[in-house]
């Protein structure tokens, strides 16, 4: 049942975004739709229109240590739904890749207020700037932290 539902969601996204969708991955492990950075806001509003009313979290990944290395960050939004019962067992992830030397993505807080603190955490841990975020400042790191953002792969913790 959920497979056909996911197919419907992906179709809607394809219709709305067209060429901006770079990769669609649907399997038992996760449902992930990679879009261009410019299409992120549109993808989010399409999902919101379909009933995905909150995000379960925002994930950042530094892809520099992959083999072969990729000089970019990946930002993912895991969206879920409370208002539509049929979507209860579905988590749709929309992802985008951004260059490491210009890590900036539009903030989705205007569409999903629930990602406010998740974006703040990704900002301080990866140095990714979410433009348009209402309160983009440090959350967990100490205020005297002056080293590189710690979850980047090129940050080596002392003693390791």
């Amino acid at each position: 049942m959920s497979e056909s539902k996911i197919g419907y969601i992906v179709n809607e996204l394809k219709q709305a975004l067209g060429e901006s969708i770079k990769e669609v991955k649907i399997d038992k492990k996760m449902t992930k739709i990679t879009v261009e950075k410019d299409a992120l806001v549109r993808a989010a509003s399409v999902l919101k229109g379909l009933g995905f009313d909150h995000v379960k979290g925002v994930t950042g990944i530094d892809l520099i240590a992959l083999k072969p290395p990729e000089d970019s960050f990946e930002v993912m939004y895991h969206a879920g739904s409370y208002s539509v019962q049929e979507l209860a067992n579905i988590i749709v992830t929309i992802a985008t890749r951004i260059p490491r030397n210009n890590p900036e993505v539009p903030s989705l807080t205007s569409i999903w207020p629930s990602c406010e603190y998740h974006e703040r955490e990704t900002y301080e841990m990866f140095g990714i700037i979410f433009s348009g975020h209402p309160n983009l400042k440090r959350l967990l790191l100490p205020e005297w932290w002056s080293d590189a953002p710690p979850l980047r792969k090129d940050y080596r913790p002392p003693g390791r």
Partner: peptide, 13 residues
């Protein structure tokens, strides 16, 4: 990468 989206963090807001 392991991303922990814990329950409490989502209730912080």
């Amino acid at each position: 990468r392991v991303r922990m989206l814990t329950a409490s963090f989502r209730n912080l807001i």
